Simulated scan of single mutants.
Amino acid sequence: MVRRPPLRLLAQAPDDLPVLSAALQDAVAQLGDFAYDSKARRFTAVFNRFRWEDGKRLQGWRTRSALDISGVLEVKSKRLKRGVESAVVSLLSLDFEMGEAPGGALKLVFSGGGALRLDVECIDLILADISEPWPAKSRPEHETGE
């Protein structure tokens, strides 16, 4: 494995989100690793992120990564097992719907049709690797549509 520094990304505009979304594609987490602090207006999530930036090397690597979202006004869930902290989800994408500028809705879309919708004052996200990488059990695969 080529030693790469831990990933640290900041998003403060809609154009920044595709990079975070790509880095988080196929990240897995337990619902118990998600937390919303309404007083602080902060949502945090810890994922086992597949390191896509390592290229196409065999099975690849995973690392623990923390996602911190500030300015969160409300969180809504769809088709997620609320209260089941051990339920595992796999993130497909991170999307943004513009609302009253600079706010809007940040959507975390999971495989199986689950989603989280975070109404935010503005885009203010930090993604940071928080562990050493380990070999992935398998490499995520997607249909190409060809």
Rank of each mutant, 00 (worst) to 15 (best):
M1Y: 06
P5V: 08
L9W: 09
L10W: 14
Q12H: 07
A13G: 00
P14F: 13
P18T: 06
S21P: 02
S21N: 05
A23I: 10
L24K: 09
L24V: 10
A27H: 06
A29E: 12
D33N: 15
D33S: 15
A35Q: 15
A35P: 01
K39N: 06
A40C: 04
R41N: 02
T44F: 05
A45R: 14
N48Q: 11
N48H: 11
R51K: 12
R51G: 02
R51H: 01
W52C: 05
W52N: 09
E53K: 08
G55V: 03
G55M: 00
G55D: 04
L58Q: 05
W61R: 14
R62S: 02
R62H: 04
S65K: 06
L67V: 14
D68E: 15
I69D: 07
G71I: 10
E74A: 14
E74P: 00
S77G: 14
K78R: 13
K78S: 05
R79A: 09
L80D: 07
L80I: 14
R82T: 10
E85Q: 10
S90W: 10
S90C: 15
L92N: 13
S93W: 05
D95M: 07
D95P: 01
F96P: 01
G99S: 07
P102K: 06
G103P: 03
A105R: 11
L106I: 08
K107L: 12
K107Y: 10
G114F: 07
L118R: 08
L118I: 06
V120S: 05
E121Y: 00
E121N: 02
D124A: 07
W134T: 13
P135F: 11
A136T: 09
S138P: 00
H142D: 04
E146F: 02
